[in-house]
Design a protein around this nucleic acid. Sequence first.
DNA 1: CTGAAAGCGCTTACAG
DNA 2: CTGAAAGCGCTTACAG
Lengths: 328, 328
Amino acid sequence: MKDVAARAGVGLKTVSRVVNEEAGVTETTIARVQAAIDALGFRRNDSARLLRKGRTASIGLVLEDLADPFYAPLSRAVEEVARAHANLLFTGSSAEDSAREQELVLAFCARRVDGLIVVPASDDHRYLEPEMAAGVATVFVDRPAGQITADEVLTDNAGGVREGVAHLVAHGHRRIGFLGDRPHIHTATERLRGYREAMAAAALPVHDSWVSMGPTAPDRVRSELERMLAGPEPVTALFVGNNRITVTAVRVLARYGRPVALVGFDDFELADLLRPGISVIAQDPALLGRTAARLLFRRLDGAAGPPHRVELSGHLIARGSGEIPPTH
Amino acid sequence: MKDVAARAGVGLKTVSRVVNEEAGVTETTIARVQAAIDALGFRRNDSARLLRKGRTASIGLVLEDLADPFYAPLSRAVEEVARAHANLLFTGSSAEDSAREQELVLAFCARRVDGLIVVPASDDHRYLEPEMAAGVATVFVDRPAGQITADEVLTDNAGGVREGVAHLVAHGHRRIGFLGDRPHIHTATERLRGYREAMAAAALPVHDSWVSMGPTAPDRVRSELERMLAGPEPVTALFVGNNRITVTAVRVLARYGRPVALVGFDDFELADLLRPGISVIAQDPALLGRTAARLLFRRLDGAAGPPHRVELSGHLIARGSGEIPPTH
DNA sequence: CTGAAAGCGCTTACAG
DNA sequence: CTGAAAGCGCTTACAG
C-alpha cells in the first residue's frame, strides 16, 4: 500500500479510501491510484485490515468428522449462513477426542475468530470461559456444553427414541434391543434414556443383555448383535443408536435367517431402496447447522440475553423394517 | 501484551520470549510474566503474530459442495494433512458456480492463506495468476485448472469409464446408454469420452438417443432414463456418470419391469446392500485429497520445479448390477 | 478533498 | 539475560 501511495504520489490514507471505495476522492485521484494498484498488482491484506478493525469476519466450526454423512450437511448449512454474513469459515474435526477439540477451538480463538460453533467431543468446556468472556460468541450444536452454560441447539434425542420404540411396541414387539454409541457421548446416553423410558411406559422389562453401548466399529456391532439374537431371550426388534451402527446392523441382519424389526436413529441416503426399507427417526442436520449459525450471528449482531437453548425434534419415517412383526 | 509487560515490570520482548518459550529468560522472570499472563487472561493474537511473520499457517479449500458424499472425505483428508503441518483450514463450497469459486478463492487470498486447494467450478483460472505469482501455492484437484498450468491431482476418468463399459460389453450388451452430468464439467466430458472410446473399441454404434448430459436433478434423470428405455432402440445397459445420478437411476430402475444392467462412476455407501448390488468404478476421494494436500505442502516447504500432474486410477467393483445380461 | 501521525498486537534486528 | 525502536499492512481520529 505504501508502494502504491508512493507511485501514485498520494498519501496512504488516500489509497485506503480508494481501495475501500470511500466517498470524497476526486475522479482523477482515483484513476491515478487505481493505475498504481494495477501496475503493482496490489491486493489488500485483509488480515492486516481486520487486525486494525477488531473483527476478523471469520468463524470456526469444530465437529466430530467433516466426512460423516450426518455432519457434512450441517457444515454446509453453517457455511451458507456464514457466507450470507460475509464471513469466512474455518473447519476442523475433533475425531471424538476432547484434547483435539480443545486444541482446535483454542487455535481458532488465537486467530481471533468472531464466533465458534462447536459439536462437543469434550464434556468440560470451562477452558472456553476466558475466550467467551473476551467476546468470542459460541454456540454448541448437536450436544450440550459441558460445565458451562451457553447457547445450544440440540435435537430431542430421548423423545425421538421414545417414538421409535413405541412404534416397535405397537407392532407387537416385547423383546426390543438397544444398540448404541459409547456412553460418554451425550446423544448416545440420551437415546438410551429414551429407550428405557419407552420400555417402562409400555411396562416391558429390559434385560441387560438387550442393551449394548460402545464403539461403532463394525466388529463390535456385529458380535453384540449376534449375542442379542442368540441369547435365551433373543430380541425380535432393535433400536439402533445412529447411522454408523445402522449400516452395520443392516449388513448383519441381511445374512440372518429370521426377519428382525429395526428402527435406526438418523436417516441416510438409500434407506428407502433397501429391502425392506429402513425405518428411522430422522433429524435434519442442515437445520441444526442453520439454526446454530443464525443464533451465532444474532449474537454477533449484538443480541444480548441469557444463554438460549433450542430443541429440534426428530420424526419417524416408516419404510418397512420397523413394521416387521415379531417372529417368535 | 503491553499490559502484561507493564504488570510484570518487564519489556515487551520479554513477554514475547516467555509466550514463545524462547531460551534465555531467568526462572524468576518467567514466573513473574506468567503470573501477569494468568492474572490478565492474556491470549496471544496469532493473527498479529502471523502478520509480522509473513506466513499465516492456513490454507483454503474450495470445492463443489462440502456436503457431497464424494467431497466430504476429500475435505477430511485435506484437513488431516493440514493438521499434520500445523495449518488451519478454511473451507468453502462453490456450488458449481464459477463466480462463487472466484469470490471464495480471492477472499482466501486476501486473508493471505499460504496455499489453496481448488476443485474447479470455473474453466478459466487466469484470475489466480497474480496470486500465484505473489507466492500462493495452489493445487487443483479432481478437475484440471483452466487456461493456466498448475499442479493437478486428477482421476483417470476416461480410463475408468472404458473399463466399466468394456465390462458391460463383456456381459453381452450392445446397446449401452450413457447418462452424465452437465457437459461444462470437465469430469463429465472426460467420462463421456471414455464411453465413446469403449464403444468404438468394441465396434459398437452409439445412437444419439443413448447419450444424455445434463443436471443431476432427479426429474431430468428420470425422464432421460425413461426415454432411453422406451425408444425404438432401447438400451439394455447403462453407464451412469456420477454418484448423484446413480442414486436416482437406481430408484427409477427399481420400479421398471425388465432388469437393466448398470455400472456407475463413484462408489457409495450401501451399494453392496442393494439387490442387485451396484457395480461401480470406484475412486478414492480421501486419497485424492491427501495427495493434493501433500503436494501443496511440499511446495510450501520449498519444492520448486514445473507444475506436477498426478493421475490416480479408478477400479471396477462388480456387485451384480453390472453383470446382468441383456434381456432383449 | 487529502494526508501525517498514532495505533491494532505482535516480531525482528540490535544494542546493552 | 533484557529491552527500546522499528516495522508487518492496514485503519482511526484528526487536522488542514
